[in-house]
């Protein structure tokens, strides 16, 4: 493994922000993997660190394919991580809304540019992400549909679900979108948890990425078999929003099958304890996402169900 500083930023009074890349193998740029672009993505950084550990073992035992180079960046914005912030330390901008970046621009545009230059030219790009809303969900892979990446390639991860998303205006400055514009086939891998650590979900995602790398021939160690991936359009997922604000209780865990008309959650009045809203599903299916905070506002996404 070669550990290198891909981009370095100076600060008035802190240590430099050194974006570290871990490189394995050599030759053709095969896969690049990016962990935390935001300060709260601890799980995503953790997954990368576990992947680096595994890759070091594969490298030692000669199981990285010849003429294959793999780059892993566990975290970009650890400056914010170290001070408990989600977005950039000053100005609160989101590095994952700054791609492809600009070397003469604002600070986070410069960081995005510096890192993106090192991420260009790979055949595949994998970004570890989580939902914007806090909640529990099933690990899955997502593809931003630009026409460049083949949705069927998502099957290589062997995760239960592969989701196709139509890009919205604000997606055009993300890493995933820009990777595809610069001809890297890009995937976003969602694991449960963001600011905490979920070991089960982590192992599942590490296994999925190794499976992907084996499938494209970047590594030679066969991995444990995965699922046959079901490919779904994001817009076909049934979503339930809260019809009231209050204390939220889910009655079923993620992954459980639910029947049409089943009560799957409740909203309780925080003052008198009365149930003010019963959340029922109109369709039978599998609970894919559920909100996990104790307090909920009205019109908040509380369940997503794959029907």
């Amino acid at each position: 493994m070669k550990k290198e500083i891909l981009y370095s930023l100076k600060s008035p009074y802190r240590d430099n922000l050194d974006v570290i890349g871990c490189r394995f193998g050599s030759g053709k740029k095969s896969v690049a993997i990016v962990g935390a672009t935001r300060g709260n993505k601890i799980q995503q950084m953790y997954i990368c660190s576990q992947l680096v550990r595994t890759m070091k073992r594969l490298e030692k035992t000669g199981k990285i394919s010849p003429n294959c180079e793999i780059l892993i960046i566990p975290c970009i914005n650890y400056y914010s991580m170290n001070i408990g912030k989600r977005f950039w330390t000053m100005g609160n901008t989101d590095i994952n809304r700054m791609f492809p970046g600009y070397d003469q621009g604002e600070t986070t545009q410069r960081i995005a540019d510096g890192v993106f230059r090192k991420l260009e030219g790979y055949e595949y790009g994998i970004q570890l992400v989580s939902f914007y809303q806090t909640g529990n969900f099933l690990p899955h892979v997502k593809l931003m549909e630009t026409g460049f990446t083949d949705p069927a390639d998502m099957e290589r991860f062997g995760l239960k679900y592969g989701i196709v998303r139509k890009p919205r205006p604000y997606d055009t400055t993300t890493l995933n979108y820009n990777w595809q514009i610069w001809e890297t086939k890009a995937f976003s891998v969602y694991s449960n948890e963001t600011s905490g650590i979920d070991d089960v979900s982590c192992s599942e995602v590490v296994a999925a990425i190794l499976r992907f790398m084996y499938s494209i021939g970047a590594i030679t160690e066969k991995s444990v078999p995965g699922y046959k991936t079901e490919i779904i359009n994001e817009s076909d997922i049934y979503q339930i929003r809260s019809s009231a604000g209050g204390i939220f209780r889910a009655d079923v865990p993620t992954g459980s099958p639910v029947e049409q008309g089943q009560v799957i959650g409740r909203i309780i009045d925080p003052i008198d304890g009365k149930t003010i809203s019963q959340i029922t599903t109109e369709y039978a299916g599998t609970v894919f996402f559920e909100y996990n905070q104790p307090l909920i506002n009205e019109s908040t996404m509380c369940f997503k169900i794959i029907v």
């Binding site: 604000g245 209050g246 204390i247 003052i271 307090l295 506002n297 009205e298 019109s299």
Partner: peptide, 10 residues
């Protein structure tokens, strides 16, 4: 207007 969690509306 939208209900917030505890006794308030946005």
């Amino acid at each position: 207007e939208t209900m917030l969690a505890v006794n308030e509306k946005l």
